[in-house]
């Protein structure tokens, strides 16, 4: 495989990681804790889309090799992930009277409950969307790029979602309130923003993006109960690389980390014998290196709190 081919795969994988890390960064800066259930929220979205796709079916025509039913199922996955997050916030996180570290520990319990439920319902084995696999796009093969139209659909959809998040944050009332709350929750409340409502919206947004990322991850690899937990670490690495709490940093960090994970096999060509199994490990080592040199991450503003979206 050529370097450009690894890079093309990297772009596809990065798109998924970016969706996950934006959601995590939003929740991190507004709900105020490192949400270890984020990976399993992705799994919830993926399985919800899987079930919905089984019910809706292909609906005949398709875009980029994907039946239109898949995109509808993905919307269902996003909605279910957001709904599950809201319910969790209402019945688990809201009544807690503990600091952010306590919330972090609780979120691990939440992650286990999600995963256990999915495993009880669907078993531990891998599932696949009932969509025929595609051959690589013919026109791109001469350039050394072998990606399928599904991969292209993932990248395009992720781009649309990222642009939508940008527009939401910068140009809408909700986005302005969210940025205000991420900056300074007390000041936001004092200026009349209903902070709890904004917090709920940030759960909807964060978990919805995670659900989308999970759906695409299920299309890219397969669905299994551990799928979300196994990318959680990569997503955390991306968020730390970008600067905790910074959404634009998370986009950049997610892109870089996704590329690194997929391009790890190239290291063996320069004399470092590391297989693709070590992709997450390399991502993690980069994260540690970033922490050593610049704890606030790429887009961090220099304050240790890492506030602001």
């Amino acid at each position: 495989m050529s370097a450009i081919e690894f890079a093309a795969n990297g772009v596809v994988y990065s798109s998924i990681i970016v969706l996950g890390s934006i959601g995590l960064a939003i929740i991190y800066s507004i709900a105020g804790f490192a949400n270890f259930a984020h990976g399993d929220t992705m799994t919830v979205g993926a399985y919800a889309a899987f079930v919905a796709f089984g019910i809706i079916g292909g609906l005949g025509f398709g875009v980029l090799g994907l039946p239109i039913g898949f995109f509808l199922a993905l919307l269902v996955g996003i909605a279910i992930a957001a709904l599950v997050a809201i319910v969790t916030e209402k019945i688990v996180y809201k009544p807690l009277e503990i600091g952010s570290i306590g919330l972090l520990i609780t979120s691990i319990g939440v992650a286990f409950v999600y995963r256990a439920m999915i495993q009880l319902g669907f078993g531990a084995d891998a599932n696949r969307f009932d969509i025929p696999a595609q051959r690589p796009i013919e026109e791109l093969i001469p350039y050394g790029i072998r990606i399928t139209s599904h991969d292209l659909a993932i990248v395009l959809s992720a781009t649309v979602l990222v642009v939508a998040v940008h527009v939401l944050l910068q140009y809408t009332d909700l986005g302005r309130k969210m940025r205000a709350m991420a900056d300074n929750p007390d000041l936001a409340r004092a200026s009349g923003i209903r902070t709890y409502r904004i917090k709920l919206w940030s759960w909807v947004l964060g978990a919805g993006l995670a659900g989308a990322g999970g759906g695409f991850l299920g299309l890219y690899n397969n669905l299994n109960p551990r799928m979300g937990f196994s990318v959680l670490l990569v997503i955390f690495a991306a968020v730390i690389l970008g600067g905790i709490g910074s959404v634009y940093g998370a986009m950049l960090g997610g892109f870089l980390i996704g590329m690194v994970v997929e391009m790890t096999p190239l290291l063996s060509r320069v004399g470092i014998p590391i297989g693709v199994d070590y992709g997450p490990a390399v991502a993690f080592l980069i994260m540690v290196a970033v922490l050593l040199v610049r704890p606030t991450g790429i887009a961090g503003d220099g304050t240790a709190g890492g506030e602001g979206i």
């Binding site: 688990v92 503990i98 520990i105 319990g109 286990f112 409950v113 439920m117 009880l120 531990a124």
Partner: peptide
């Protein structure tokens, strides 16, 4: 019920309930 997810569920619920 499978033992493995059941264990996971118990551990998860226990974390949430203790913290709550």
């Amino acid at each position: 019920l499978d033992a493995a997810p059941l264990r996971l569920l118990l551990i998860g619920l226990l974390i949430v309930l203790v913290m709550r």
